[in-house]
């Protein structure tokens, strides 16, 4: 019980700090006017501003990026596009490795560097992903996830201009990622005088190729979403939580309509989880080349049995969602 309340306190503290840093945005949101009583999602208090940025990004995409991506896909055959994806994926691997090490996953981190070494050489500069064929699995890590594993709460949801869905933690992570990314260092190493031009050209190609690969997914998204903004927001939050747990989050029982909403966010869980399972870092979460999916056994933390205590404490997380209106 004490642990949970402490975690709640920490959560609200850092939320406030996040909000202070974003005071101008808050002001904007207030000026925009909040018609309804409180946000639908308590983790998106800046919804009005976020929606405006979302519309801006969407407009930019429709007018410019998507048409270019469609032309790109029409002109270049699939193998070429896969090669481009592999090339940029390879440039990410060293930084992914650093993040795995920072998260205490030594084997996974070393795998990422072996991937980079392998693909950069016999994979023709990363165009071919030969490492995956050698059972060196590709990972998905970034500094925002590392912060999350260290126990940093996500903070308020943010839609960033150009970059899209994010939050305070992942936005900060993005800044660090920009300096860790291989695409930042490559031009500096091979052609320092023209590094800016190289970097811009590489980024443009990366974005267009990525956008082209999302054209199919987009049609599913368009068919599914009732409200594209909130659909993307909720998907983003769930996806990030899942990534921080490397695709194997503790099971979250879906709440039935009768029960109050249990703490849904990752917020403080990983640090607690790691404290409870110190050996898990290197052993149970090992996902290197030798681990088959079957060998990975993750001990699940139990959902606080004293959940009633959280309710009594009146923690923010205990506020039943959807009933805070009217």
């Amino acid at each position: 019980m004490r642990m949970v309340s402490a975690a709640d306190l920490r959560l609200s503290f850092s939320r406030r700090r996040g909000a202070a840093a974003l005071a101008p945005l808050v002001l904007l949101a207030l000026l925009g006017g909040c018609a309804s009583a409180g946000p639908v999602n308590p983790r998106d208090p800046l919804e009005a501003t976020n929606r405006a940025v979302f519309e801006f990004n969407d407009g930019l995409d429709k007018a410019f990026i998507k048409p270019v991506a469609q032309a790109y896909r029409a002109v270049l055959p699939q193998p070429v596009r896969t090669g481009v994806r592999n090339f940029f994926g390879n440039l990410q691997d060293p930084w992914i490795g650093v993040n795995n090490l920072l998260q205490g996953k030594v084997e996974a981190g070393l795998t990422d560097w072996f991937r980079f070494a392998t693909n950069s050489t016999i994979g023709f500069g990363g165009v071919m992903d030969v490492a995956s064929g050698m059972r060196m699995a590709k990972h998905n890590e970034d500094f925002g996830q590392t912060l999350g594993v260290w126990g940093a709460p996500p903070g308020d949801y943010l839609v960033l201009p150009l970059f899209g869905p994010s939050n305070v933690r992942d936005g900060l992570g993005l800044i660090v990622d920009a300096y860790g990314y291989g695409g930042f260092w490559l031009p500096r190493l091979i052609d320092p005088p023209h590094r800016v031009a190289w970097r811009n050209s590489l980024s443009a190609l990366d974005i267009v190729n990525l956008r082209a690969s999302l054209l199919d997914t987009e049609s599913i998204f368009e068919a599914a979403a009732l409200d594209r903004y909130s659909f993307l927001r909720d998907a983003y939050m769930q996806r990030r939580r899942n990534l921080i747990y490397d695709g194997d989050p503790p099971r979250e029982r879906l709440r039935d309509e009768e029960e109050p909403v249990a703490p849904t966010s990752l917020d403080t869980e990983p640090s607690r989880w790691i404290m409870a399972h110190p050996t898990a870092l290197g052993v149970a979460r090992y996902s290197g080349p030798l681990a088959t999916a079957h060998a990975v056994q993750v001990v699940e933390p139990t959902v606080p049995a004293n959940y009633a205590g959280v309710l009594a404490a009146g923690g923010r997380a205990a506020t039943p969602r959807g009933e805070d209106n009217e």
Binding site: V40, D227, S230, F231, D234, A235, G322
Partner: peptide, 9 residues
């Protein structure tokens, strides 16, 4: 759950 917010709204 991805639909939950849209529904609530």
């Amino acid at each position: 759950t991805t639909y939950r917010d849209a529904f609530t709204q």
